[in-house]
């Protein structure tokens, strides 16, 4: 197992260097000079332009700029945002807990509903329940996030007044943000009603962000279960007289889980992409909107630093998924 883990870890290093290169190059291949964009309609003189080029280090050859960036990354320095003038590292980690919290809630929601839905659909293959569940999943998968979010806000916040429109907690609650996770901080604050308020604020964004992964997990679970349920050993289990719950829940599900876990791992990327829209609509202070704003402003340090950190996180999640394969299926770790 240790050898398997080590081999997976070794692939990390070249990928990491590749990611630094791509994140550095990505924003630079886009047309648009950050200094001119920053000056806007107002413009600036040539002397001022040259001064700012020097100040931001753009007068250096591109390989020198990359090398400086790479060395900075190794030392944990991702540079300073052109716009807010604050270290990228600080900005990222002040916003990331909000995105992580929302993503975890969305993923829990997606798995808790998606797995049983997929299993029920597979067990009832071809019946009404199967069709109903899979059609709903298809609708969920196809729904534009933006539209879905506004619809939920209008119905649940506007008309029914059940949930707040946006934000992370009611404005009357104010306490130090120690962990950055509003559920933890609100509990720790000891303020009456704060935790409940935080939960109420999480409901709609979780629903919106979790909808697509839920649909994908449900469909993937169904097809994986169907494949496994047709295997010889399931027939043997049935012949042995095992209960359907034991056959489906233990023998079939464990083997069907491998492709499902792959999908869950890959959904991390989808969640981050979905977070951009979800965070914008629900005024959720996370990294999604921060990254998009930075691309428009050509804020090089933020874009390259943010991309790098997100890529490293996705890599870590995928490494974890690889390791989980080994845990679930002993055949994989012995290969």
């Amino acid at each position: 197992m240790l050898k398997y883990f080590g081999s997976r870890l070794l692939t990390f290093l070249p990928t990491f260097i590749g990611v630094t290169l791509i994140s550095f190059a990505f924003i630079r291949v886009l047309p648009g000079d950050p200094i001119i964009v920053m000056a806007g309609e107002r413009g600036l003189t040539e002397a001022r332009y040259a001064e700012l080029m020097t100040q931001f280090g753009f007068d250096q050859p591109i390989y020198v700029q990359y090398w400086d960036y790479f060395i900075g990354v190794l030392q944990g320095d991702l540079g300073q945002s052109f716009v807010t003038k604050k270290p990228v590292w600080d900005e990222f980690f002040s916003l990331f807990p909000a995105t992580l919290e929302l993503s975890i809630c969305a993923m829990i929601f997606a798995v808790l509903l998606g797995l049983p839905a997929g299993i029920i659909a597979a067990v009832n293959r071809g019946k009404f329940l199967d069709r109903a569940l899979m059609s709903t999943a298809l609708v969920g998968y196809s729904m534009p996030i933006f539209w879905w979010a506004l619809l939920l806000i209008i119905v649940f916040s506007g008309n029914l007044n059940w949930t707040p429109v946006s934000g992370r907690i009611d404005l009357i609650y104010y306490f130090p943000s120690a962990s950055g996770f509003i559920l933890i901080d609100s509990l720790a604050s000891g303020q009456k009603g704060a935790f409940l308020s935080a939960v109420r604020h999480l409901i709609l964004p979780t629903l919106v962000l979790g909808t697509i992964p839920l649909a994908v997990i449900a469909r993937q679970t169904r097809s994986a279960m169907l494949e496994v349920l047709g295997e010889d050993y399931i027939r043997t289990a049935r012949a042995k007289g095992l209960t359907p719950a034991r056959i489906n829940g233990i023998h079939a599900l464990r083997n069907a889980l491998i492709p499902v876990i792959t999908v869950i791992g890959l959904s991390v990327g989808t969640l981050l992409a979905g977070a951009i829209l979800t965070e914008t609509i629900f005024s959720w202070p996370g990294i999604g909107k921060w990254m998009v704003d930075s691309i428009f402003r050509r804020d090089y340090p933020v874009v390259q630093g943010g991309l790098l950190l997100i890529a490293v996180m996705v890599m870590v999640v995928n490494l974890t998924v690889d390791v989980l394969y080994g845990v679930i299926n002993p055949k994989i770790r012995k290969r």
């Binding site: 506004l150 806000i153 916040s157 007044n161 429109v165 946006s166 934000g167 629900f282 005024s283």
Partner: peptide, 20 residues
């Protein structure tokens, strides 16, 4: 005075309507 940062204009309107 509190600034509730709300980037989407439709959501801002919903918040005004809801009294937030």
């Amino acid at each position: 005075l509190v600034f509730a940062i709300t980037p989407d204009a439709s959501v801002r309107y919903q918040k005004v309507q809801a009294g937030e």
